[in-house]
Nucleic acid binder design. Structure first.
Lengths: 201, 201, 201, 201
DNA sequence: TGAGTTAGAATGGCACCACCCGTC
DNA sequence: GACGGGTGGTGCCATTCTAACTCA
């Protein structure tokens, strides 16, 4: 199973999402994370600590990826139209993380417009960095997306300082000392479940 | 005076910074904002409401920019090394917004490394989206940057929902109804002052 | 029903206990609190704000107390042996608040020794200001008291800043703005229940 | 030098203060602690373990106290006006421990009112059982006392479980095994220093 | 090898702040 | 429109338990 994570805009938790989806899938079967983002964020995350799956850059892929059951790809931000077509055609699901704010939604709309010109694109939008109650930004954006009939994960990822600590420590969020680490990990586990039920009903 | 805003990573408040620095400079003299980001975030911000200065894309620049005293340029994310050289050589100050988190700092280091290979680059780092007390992420990252002798604005921009509302309303942050709108605007005004005293001591 | 609150040692929550037991009983029937402590703590508590029952000093009692169903008496600290005998013989239950520390227990032992020389004294010990987990001071002292066959309330009162705020505001603890106000009140409600089931089985 | 410790209200650390001031003074010269509190808390403290100075009750005083350079007296709680006059006139300094809460302050005000009717009373207020950060109860009460021009020790005594352990073990706080024992002892040492500089400038 | 010492995990109370939603 | 209640995230501290580590 190949999961690609992409977004037009940076800073929306693309790398965090790739890492934690890979961590979830690793719980099911051998998983590989390919860091195709020129910033090499996922690689430096892995370098600072230890992740339960290997992380490689896109040049090391050929000799490896048929040893793995699942592959998660962290792509560069702002893919071109052509890039998008390639991405979509080579994966089972394209995950589009976005924060619940106007600027990110703007960029999301551009991406989706491009996607919908492709034949039967498999993609799903993931709301990330959702601010805590009483902000309703998360709910508002979700219902907005749903009313636009855009495929969105039912579960979103809340904004927790635990994710920052995890990035700093170089581990998945469940590996750090934080009162909200468990809740943060549950969010990604729920999203991982949604992916599994979508692709293997 | 030409101010360029750039960053390797998206989602760090690049567009917000460009808009509010332009709003500040407009208070001194006629100012133009050039939106050179392919996402056209600044343009869509302007389109949703009204900004006190004109916003144009990079193709409309030639016939305009000598009518203006100040020009702020919102560049695309992830400029190449060559792009950076061009940006730096054509402006009086390069502003590098960054959020106080590891992933953004990673990208910042790449940018700065590139910059320091250029002759006498004029740039300054701006901390944005600083989480509220009791988080000390802002202070920690600032002292980290200072201990690395990187030029950093003394004032940072705090994370306020008011900025989201401003983006949605298409106005600068002082133009919206929000208890923290004033504080948010003060942050950018202080940064604008720092720029003025740096460039016109 | 007449409840007397007494202790050899001050600072163990005697006044707080008297006030909150009266507040609980007021929920059942008309209740009067008599402040017989020379420090007049209960009266000054009532004066700072508003309590749901009247508070009077011991000189105002005669003309009043037959209008009330329940009477709670806050006595002075360090009653003499003779005082104790009088107290016990004129109430249905003597409540002895004590904090879970050695110095308070010392004083408690003196009180209890005196009490046990009286015929069939009705009294029960209430643990107050119990420090939070992981301190086990509360549990340790409770089992110590039980192993000495001293009648002790099953529920203790935990140490919460909410009680201080309540004293300052002049209201019962449920009347203030504090995240732990509800838990604090539940403690006293449970103790009140224990009293009711003891006296009206 | 004769130091008397008194308070209208119990449970504010009167005995703990007397013991630790005596322990401090013992470091300067031979010191005697007179336990005049009917609860005999200091005596039972001494009995449970070993203190570096003798503790006697008020009946054993006559034949002893001229052998000692310093004498600390732990008085009973709630002295009458007459008691207070006697206490003040027979000591060099009256130390009034109080916890930073409204009920204790109430009692303190009564004491101070009585004191100020005496000629040139030498007394100083000591804040005890100060709750830890982030509570600011200690600071608030101290500035309140200072704004009322009441003589207050600059250093307060923080609330530490170490004091309970010390009482249980029958030793001064520095004699027990506890991570905060040293900090607790420093608090009293600082207060002792303040006394010395006040009385022997 | 055993005992004392220290380092870290876990827990809970607390204050602060940002945010939304009522009321006045 | 300002103000207060309510909610939730975050950091900090005190405390205890456990585990590792040192020293005799």
């Amino acid at each position: 199973m190949i999961i690609t994570v992409a977004s037009f805009k940076g800073g929306v938790g693309k790398t965090t999402t790739a890492i934690h989806l890979a961590a979830f899938l690793q719980g099911q079967a051998k998983t590989l994370l390919i860091d195709a983002d020129p910033n090499r964020s996922a690689l430096s995350w892995a370098q600072r600590g230890e992740l339960p799956f290997p992380v490689v850059d896109e040049w090391q892929v050929d000799q490896l990826h048929n040893h793995y059951h699942h592959v998660v790809i962290d792509t560069q931000a702002r893919p071109t139209q052509a890039d998008l077509a390639t991405l979509v055609s080579h994966c089972h699901l394209l995950v589009l993380p976005t924060t619940p704010d106007i600027l990110a939604l703007d960029a999301l709309v551009l991406t989706v417009n491009h996607l919908q010109q492709l034949p039967a694109p498999q993609y799903q939008i993931l709301l990330t960095a959702i601010p805590p109650h009483p902000s309703r930004a998360g709910d508002e954006v979700r219902s907005l997306l749903q009313s636009a009939h855009l495929p969105t994960f039912a579960r979103g990822i809340r904004r927790y300082a635990a994710f920052q600590k995890a990035a700093q420590a170089g581990v998945p969020v469940y590996g750090i000392q934080d009162p909200k680490a468990e809740a943060a990990w549950q969010d990604y586990k729920a999203v991982g479940q949604e992916i599994l039920t979508r692709l293997h009903p």
